[in-house]
């Protein structure tokens, strides 16, 4: 598997560490309530198809949002988490 670090370019997956679904970018407000926090931390879709998740490119320190397909394994896009966040 290969992923494109938006900074470094196309790299082998061994350079990346997986974190999880990109919903982790949308941290609820402290007072958002238990449901929002439970959902943020624990509830995940298990899509058969397109998904967005977070990977850390260890060598350069970039957090990357990866758009990929769980069926075809196609990687359709990557972006810096700091930019996807904005």
């Amino acid at each position: 598997m290969r992923l494109t670090c938006p900074v470094c370019g196309d790299r082998d997956h061994r350079e990346f560490t997986y974190k999880g679904d990109a919903v982790m970018l949308d941290r609820p407000a402290p007072d958002a309530g238990t449901d929002a926090w439970d959902s943020y931390l624990h509830l995940r879709d298990n899509p058969c198809g397109d998904t967005r998740d977070l990977w850390y490119h260890d060598p350069c320190g970039a957090w990357v949002v990866v758009e990929r397909n769980t069926v075809t394994h196609a990687v359709t896009g990557t972006a810096l988490a700091s930019e996807a966040k904005r």
């Binding site: 850390y56 957090w63 988490a81």
Partner: peptide
């Protein structure tokens, strides 16, 4: 911790 701090700076509080 280094990975976590990078995460906070890029993913939560850019």
């Amino acid at each position: 911790v280094m990975r976590h701090l990078d995460w906070v700076l890029q993913g939560l509080r850019p």
